[in-house]
Design a protein around this nucleic acid. Structure first.
Lengths: 112, 112
DNA sequence: TCCATATTTCTAGTTATATCGAAATATTGA
DNA sequence: TCAATATTTCGATATAACTAGAAATATGGA
C-alpha cells in the first residue's frame, strides 16, 4: 500500500463523526446500510453525513452503490484490513541502521 | 479502547508528514531515535517536526524522554497494535439488527 | 562561566476541515 | 404526470491544522 493511500485512510478515520459512521458500517457487516439508516443510527444531519460518506468513499474505506432510490454503503473490509496491517508492517526494519549522528561505535554497543 | 482515543490516534496518522515520522520510528524499533536523527531522515524543519512529535505523543503513538540533551522518541508499539485491532474489532456485530427502516420481514429473509 | 548543540515555543500566514440549512436532483409508485 | 422519498450539491461560516522562521530554553563540555 502506498503511503498516500494510507494517509487518506487514516485521515478519514480521524474524525469523531466519520469514525462513528465507519464503525456503524463495520458493525453492519457486508450487507451494508442505506444512508437513511446510517443517519438514524448516528444522528448526523443528512448533508453532513453525505459529505462524510463521500470522504470515506474517496479514501476507499466505504463503497457505495445505488439500489433503487437508496444508496447502499458498505465498509471495504479488504482495504480496512490492509490499513490495519500497514501500521506495523515495517516494524524494526531499520533497527540496526546506525546512521544516527551520535551512534555509538560498535565496541560500545555491548550494553544494549 | 475508547473511540475518542482511537480518533486521536488515526487523526495523528492522517498527515503525510506525521505518518512519515511515525513510520521512521516504527522502522527504527524499540530503541527509538533522537529528534535530530528523525529530522535528518525525514527532512522536516525542526519546528515543524517538534510540533508533529508533540501531536504524536499526545495521541500516545510516540513516547518521548529526555536523555542528556537529546530527546529520544519511540513508537508506542502496544498502542499501535491496539489501534490496528480497533479498526475491525466489532465487525458484523449488528449483522442481523433489523431496525433497518426497510428491513424485510423474517419470512422474506430466506434468500440471504 | 561560556559556547555549541538539541529541541521547543512563539508567531503568523495560508490552507483545509467541519458543520448544516436550503435548494436541487433522482427515483419510484400512484 | 405528480407527489413522496432518498440523497446530494450549494453556499456560507466557523474552527482547526500545517508550515516554518526566529527567538527562547536547556544541557553538557571546555
Amino acid at each position: 500500500m502506498e503511503t498516500t493511500v494510507a494517509v487518506e485512510g487514516f485521515s478519514a478515520m480521524g474524525s469523531e463523526s466519520r469514525l462513528a459512521v465507519l464503525q456503524t458500517l463495520v458493525k453492519a457487516g457486508p450487507k451494508g446500510l442505506p444512508v437513511g439508516e446510517i443517519q438514524k443510527r448516528t444522528n448526523i444531519p443528512a448533508s453532513t453525513l453525505a459529505h462524510h460518506l463521500k470522504f470515506l468513499a474517496a479514501a476507499h474505506l466505504v463503497e457505495q452503490d445505488k439500489q433503487g432510490r437508496s444508496i447502499i454503503n458498505r465498509a471495504d473490509f479488504t482495504h480496512l484490513e490492509a490499513l490495519a496491517e500497514f501500521i506495523l508492517r515495517e516494524c524494526c526494519a531499520d533497527q540496526d541502521t546506525s546512521s544516527q549522528s551520535n551512534a555509538p561505535s560498535e565496541k560500545e554497543l555491548v550494553h544494549d
